[in-house]
């Protein structure tokens, strides 16, 4: 779970500000503690609070979750990469739309469709198990209904 949170944090930073440092990042989203307390110290009713310093500290300790509202479509590269067993990648969509996620060989031959259907606005993370794949370079192809398609390479290596 914490890994997802950290990835989401990085994604938010990357998508919204281009800055990878959470300490200086402005979030467009909502953060909550495990006790479900809104962490916006200025205005608890503000649904797009700035991330407070204390919230960033809590986030780093894995004590809060972050809900993000992406402003545009984005792709989160697989991490770790190269991968031997499990890797995590994702995508962000600012509005509900149809998305398909396919795993391809480098020759663009499809290995399998991981998902195809409607997704709601937000960041969607996927943990890919590659234990049944032979060594080599694969592509994760994400086709968005309302944006250009994206690709990311995953190197399977044992």
């Amino acid at each position: 779970m914490n890994r997802f949170l950290l990835v989401a944090l990085g994604v938010t930073s990357l998508l919204l500000t281009g800055c990878p440092d959470p300490a200086t990042t402005t979030f467009s989203g909502i953060a909550r503690t495990d006790d479900a307390c809104l962490v916006s110290e200025d205005d608890p009713q503000d649904w797009q609070p700035r991330m407070s310093t204390s919230a960033v500290r809590q986030l780093r300790r894995g004590e809060i979750t972050v809900e993000v509202q992406p402003e545009r479509v984005g792709c989160i590269p697989a991490c770790p990469n190269p991968v031997s067993r499990l890797t995590t990648f994702g995508f962000a969509v600012p509005e509900t739309q149809n998305v398909s996620v396919r795993l391809l060989r480098s020759s663009n031959e499809e290995v399998r469709t991981l998902f195809s259907g409607k997704v709601t606005a937000g960041v969607h993370m996927y943990e890919l198990d590659v234990t049944d794949l032979t060594n080599g370079t694969y592509r994760v192809a994400i086709d968005f209904e309302k944006a250009a398609d994206t690709f990311g390479d995953v190197l399977v290596q044992r």
Partner: peptide
Amino acid sequence: EGFKTFAPGMN
């Protein structure tokens, strides 16, 4: 494997 979603209003 299933997706983990982060979205406004998810909770």
